[in-house]
Design a protein around this nucleic acid. Structure first.
Lengths: 325, 325
DNA sequence: TTGAAAGCGCTAACAG
DNA sequence: CTGTTAGCGCTTTCAA
């Protein structure tokens, strides 16, 4: 690979001058500019960003830690984060924590070592102090760690209300809520809280199930859902905390001969693109993945640039009614 | 952030010695080792990988260019690539090209500038010479660019045969194949070739449709599939080039009142995890995403280490029969 | 067993 | 408008 020195020699000036045209800083003659650009073309020169990072103390890299990119919700969010990062001249280092505490720690150290300019955290298994000691621009997705670390979430409480109210409105008498892990302090817990409030308020029979901690496991979902219908065959409404789980519920209904929405009504969560493809369409609460990604990037960049950013960033959700209700 | 100098001063030695214990190279007294490690603990020291990369001329970063992480197939592959990269001490820089030629070029330059040690290319919209001029360890997914650049693909021809034969065996009389873009020189084209060969061989009526170039667009799929059934209402078998498209076909069948598999039989491709959730289950040709990811990483690393690697790497596919056939 | 010195590729005062 | 010099944080000969 050609270096700045090569092109300096070729043009017959010092590296300083070349650096100047590279960065378009200070006075440079048109003549020099032209020659340098030509030489760059010829030698196929590409500035070494590693060297630049070292001296500028800025890598232009954002680290992203999520449980699993292959989960459709995180896949979509990641897509948009990468999109907006690139648009703003940043690169994305991707880390899949699998909701594993140790891996999460290691990734954070790795990212610090790699001199990333900021971290977007979509996985939160560690203790509060582990996050506060990071000392790097940070933004979390769906978790409020302290009031100093900005977070982005969609309006989980509202989502929980919308889903629960819809099921009630449609006449469900016994409703199950299948939530994610309730102990991780995720804001997604608010969906559960809203569910409880609404349902208690209306005095409707209900149960709450929780999926386990070990990431996203389709088999686990399957067992959970199957056991649920076995123990509570009279369930006629399910509010699932993800579209994946909702699809699992739908599948189980088919398997045991319950028709949807006649016997059982189902509401999912996330509004993943793939949800459109399932028949009957699963009613869902759509999270604005694009806006989440965009905001995550802008909040990180603003912090990198030393600006103050709002700590609470709650984006609206939207109820999408399809055939499962 | 503490630097090597800080810890050298704290311990009362030179940076050279500290560097030695960091890298466990050369003679170092146990005493020094211990002291240095203590100081590292105390100052929460993390070696600056940017500085290391600069001097070692090795970043330990792999670049990954794919069309779109939020597409489930690529999401899964990306997940495994990151997994194995991390396992081998490498980091992953993620790039979504959206199958856009210009973006792909820019990403490649960006990755070169970032001094990545190698590139895994899962997006191929450029011309052959653009790839050969990259001069960096590289491996492509599903495209044979030249006989010098190693590629990984699953056995597309076999997959096409399996799918087509199954549909025929199940009694289909008019079979449609919905392929991806046939002009991108992807090896996925072999699915189409196999389809043609088998179907002509048996003299069965058929049509071939092609999805467009602009990445993955659910609306486009919808229109395509809808138009297909309108023009050819007598189609009773569909071999789709992805599970997503197959799901779209299934959905359209529901919409227009065709039952699956009685009226129309469907075979998808990829074997994405999400496919399990759809009812009726869509028969599919499963690509070994985990093995693909693992092999991509190992082929890149072997090249980085100067080893020769096999150029053609074809992994087996597997027919998974579900209810759509 | 440890240190001095050079240098990776680039930027940035400060001179001229 | 251009060059000299120092230095980012680290590794690595070569000496001691």
């Amino acid at each position: 690979m050609a270096t700045i020195k090569d092109i300096a020699e070729k043009v017959g000036v010092t590296v300083t001058s070349v650096s100047r045209v590279l960065n378009n800083r200070g006075y440079i003659s048109e003549m020099l500019k032209k020659k340098v650009h030509e030489a760059m073309e010829e030698l196929n020169y590409q500035p070494n960003e590693v060297a630049r990072s070292l001296i500028r103390k800025k890598s232009n890299i954002i680290g992203l830690i999520i449980p699993d990119v292959s989960h459709p919700f995180f896949g979509e969010v990641t897509y948009y984060i990468e999109y907006y990062a690139d648009k703003n001249g940043y690169k994305l280092l991707l880390c899949n924590s699998k909701l594993n505490k140790l891996k999460e720690k290691e990734y954070i150290n790795m990212l610090k070592g790699s001199q990333v300019d900021g971290i977007i955290m979509g996985s939160h298994t560690m203790d509060t102090k582990d996050y506060t000691s990071i000392k790097l621009p940070m933004v979390t997705l769906d978790r409020q760690i302290t009031d100093t670390i900005p977070y982005i979430s969609s309006d989980n409480y509202k989502g929980g209300e919308l889903a629960t109210n819809l099921l009630i409105k449609k006449g469900c008498k016994k409703i199950a809520h299948i939530s994610g892990n309730l102990h991780l302090n995720l804001l997604a817990k608010l969906r559960h809280d809203a569910f409880k409030k609404v349902i208690l308020n209306k005095g409707i029979e209900h149960i709450v199930l929780q999926t386990d901690l070990n990431g996203f496991n389709y088999d686990e979902y399957e067992q959970l859902v199957s056991a649920m219908f076995q123990e509570h065959p009279d369930i006629d409404g399910v509010f699932a905390s993800s579209d994946i789980i909702a699809a699992q519920v739908l599948k189980e209904c088919y398997r045991i001969g319950k028709s949807v929405p006649q016997d059982v009504k189902i509401v999912g969560y996330d509004g993943i693109q793939l949800g459109q493809l399932i028949t009957p369409g699963i009613t869902t609460i759509k999270q604005p993945t694009k806006d989440i990604g965009k905001m995550a990037v802008s909040l990180i960049i603003e912090q990198i640039e030393g600006e103050d950013v709002p700590k609470e960033n709650i984006l609206p959700v939207k109820l999408i009614e399809r055939q499962s209700t």
